[in-house]
Amino acid sequence: MRKTERVLLGCLLWLSLAVAAAPPPGLPGLPPAAPPAPRADPAAGWSALAPAQQRDLRARYAAWRALPESERQRIRQAAARVAALSAAERDALRARFAGQDQLHRDGWRLGPQLGALYPKLQPLLGYVPAEQREPLLTLLRQLDPEQLAQLTLIAQRTPPQDRAELRAQLLGVSAAGRSAWLREKVGH
C-alpha cells in the first residue's frame, strides 16, 4: 500500500469512527463492524449518547464540513477502496488507527494532506488561539508540499516559548513573500 493510500485510509478511519456511531447525511465512512439495530426514531439514538459523545460527533462533523471539497473527494475515493476490503481487513485498519495516540488521531480531522503532517506540525498547531485557528488552517491549505515540508522543519525547531511569535509572523507574511520567508526560516 502506497503512503498516499495509508494517509487517506487514516483519515477515512477517523471519519468512520464518527460515521459508525451516528452518520450525518452524506458523510462517507466504513460500515460499522456489526450492523446497527434499526431505530424507529433517529433522535432517540442521538439522545441516548452521552454528552461527551455528542460533542465529539459534532466536532468530527464540523471538521468534515470545514474540509475543502478536494480533500473530501479524496476521502470518498478512499472510502470506496476501503469498502472493497474484507471485513477482517477493515477491522485490522480500524484497530491500527485506534492504536495511534489520540493526538495523532485528532490530527486527521484536518484532512488527508495536513493530517499526514500533523505529528510534525503539532508544535505549531497545538495551542492556537481561537482567532488564529481558521486563518492558519486556510494558510496551511494554500501551501504546496515543499512549503509544508519547510514549515514542518521550522515547527520542530522552534522552542515552545517562540511558537506564538512564529504563528503571528507566518500569518503576517503575504502569499507572494511566503516562499522566501519559509526558505529564510529553514536556513536555505
Results as ranks from 00 to 15, higher is better:
Glu131Lys: 09
Leu124Val: 03
Leu110Glu: 04
Leu117Gln: 10
Val19Cys: 14
Gly29Leu: 06
Asp106Thr: 00
Ile75Thr: 00
Gln161Ile: 11
Lys3Arg: 14
Pro119Lys: 04
Leu143Glu: 06
Val186Met: 05
Leu166Thr: 09
Leu103Gly: 04
Pro51Tyr: 07
Ala149Ser: 09
Tyr61Lys: 07
Leu151Gly: 09
Leu124Lys: 00
Arg141Asp: 13
Ala92His: 08
Leu93Pro: 02
Gln150Arg: 13
Ala176Gln: 15
Arg94Ile: 06
Gly126Pro: 01
Ser86Thr: 15
Ala48Asp: 06
Glu165Leu: 12
Gln77His: 03
Ala155Met: 10
Arg167Ala: 00
Pro36Asn: 06
Ala34Asn: 04
Gly99Glu: 09
Pro159Leu: 07
Leu49Val: 07
Val173Glu: 09
Pro129Lys: 12
Leu117Pro: 04
Arg133Glu: 13
Met1Ile: 11
Trp46Asp: 10
Leu114Thr: 04
Pro119Met: 06
Trp64Leu: 00
Pro31Gln: 03
Pro51Thr: 08
Glu165Val: 11
Ala83Tyr: 02
Thr4Ala: 14
Gln100His: 13
Glu184Asn: 13
Leu17His: 09
Arg157Lys: 14
Arg90Glu: 02
Ala95Asn: 10
Tyr127Ile: 01
Pro25Glu: 15
Cys11Leu: 01
Asp41Leu: 09
Asp41Asn: 12
Ala84Ile: 02
Leu148Val: 09
Ser179Pro: 03
Arg65Cys: 13
Leu103Lys: 01
Gly107Lys: 01
Phe97Asp: 08
Asp56Cys: 08
Ala95Gln: 15
Leu121Glu: 04
Pro35Asp: 01
Glu5Pro: 00
Glu71Lys: 07
Ala87Phe: 02
Leu136Tyr: 03
Arg105Gln: 15
Arg178Pro: 01
Gln113His: 02
Leu166Gln: 11
Pro23Asp: 02
Leu140Phe: 09
Arg133Val: 12
Glu184His: 15
Leu117Cys: 07
Gly126Ile: 00
Gly45Met: 10
Ala78Ser: 13
Arg183Ser: 13
Val128Ile: 14
Pro145Thr: 02
Ser179Asn: 06
Trp181Lys: 08
Arg141Cys: 09
Arg178Ile: 06
Gln102Trp: 06
Ala78Thr: 02
Arg74Ile: 00
Ala22Leu: 13
Glu184Lys: 15
Ala155Ile: 07
Ala88Gln: 02
Ala176Met: 11
Asp91Asn: 13
Ala80Ser: 06
Arg157Trp: 08
Lys120Met: 04
Ala175Trp: 12
Asp56Trp: 15
Val19Gln: 11
Arg105Pro: 10
Val82Pro: 00
Ala78Phe: 05
Leu137Ile: 03
Leu170Gln: 03
Glu69Val: 02
Arg133Gln: 14
Ala83Asp: 10
Arg74Gln: 03
Gly187Thr: 10
Ala180Gly: 06
Leu49Trp: 10
Gln77Thr: 05
Ser174Phe: 14
Arg183Lys: 13
Phe97Gln: 11
Ala59Pro: 05
Trp64Lys: 01
Arg39Met: 12
